[in-house]
Design a protein around this nucleic acid. Structure first.
Length: 234
DNA sequence: GCGACAG
DNA sequence: ATCTTGTCGC
């Protein structure tokens, strides 16, 4: 798939913030989805004391959630982790991975936030704008904003507000477990994003997309036969 | 000025 | 993110 090159990556935080404010204006927060046949999970891991970045993408058939395609790429780490600028550290490697995919996904599920961000431009928004694809942010911990307590039932959720604005939601995907944080990245509204995340979630806290990509990016090497295709995470 | 701070 | 022991529950 082809990805737009809208700006350089070797920027300081001042310049990066300008890029974020500029591109945030392009983000679409209403549904402009194509029929969903493939859902991609994206995650990044690190090796060798953070000097090597590993970007993984797992494309699952929807709604069966079996593996349709996957890719894992490694490249030198070029940007430090700075809250608010995660995409400048992880997106370059993710782009390398997406370009090598054989199956083009209809939507991207990113490990990290979308509009749950100081400037409303988290990594899911950045990937959505660069690829032009619908994108959703799926985070494990809160970042900015507050929300009321969640009911302890599967599927319950509460809006997250920041500066008089609803920017995402805390979603309980499993009883007795802390919620995950969902926010739109691009071409999708919050309610649809939550619904889709729940449809991709089976018996675990994280949706299957995240579980696959996380295992590829951070887990031990996976035997070829286990990745042959059409399989379910075990 | 002080505290908080996605992965 | 990564490292890493012990512990609780199905």
């Amino acid at each position: 798939m082809h990805i737009r090159k809208l700006h350089p990556w070797d920027l300081d935080t001042k310049q990066a913030a300008d890029v974020q404010r500029e591109l945030a204006a392009e983000v679409i927060l209403t549904d402009r989805l194509d029929p969903i046949e493939y859902v991609a999970g994206i995650d990044v891991g690190y090796e060798d004391g953070n000097t090597v970045t590993r970007a993984a993408v797992a494309v699952l058939n929807f709604p069966s959630l079996t593996l349709a395609d996957w890719i894992l790429v490694k490249r030198p780490t070029t940007f430090p982790y700075i809250p608010g600028y995660l995409s400048f550290r992880e997106v370059p490697a993710i782009i390398d991975a997406l370009e090598q995919l054989k199956v083009t996904p209809n939507i991207l599920f990113c490990d990290g936030h979308g509009t749950i961000h100081p400037r409303r431009f988290g990594i899911a928004c950045h990937l959505g704008i660069l690829t032009g694809l619908p994108a959703v942010g799926v985070g494990k911990t809160p970042y900015v904003g507050k929300h009321d307590p969640l009911a302890d039932t599967k599927g319950s959720w509460q809006p997250i507000r920041h500066k008089e604005e609803v920017i995402g939601a805390a979603v309980r995907t499993r009883v007795g477990v802390k919620p995950i944080y969902v926010s739109p990245g691009h071409r999708i509204c919050l309610e649809t994003a939550i619904s889709l995340v729940l449809k991709c979630t089976l018996g675990y806290k994280q949706p299957e997309t995240t579980r696959w990509s996380h295992r590829l990016a951070s887990g031990p090497p996976i035997p070829e036969e286990k990745l042959a295709g059409g399989l379910t995470l075990s």
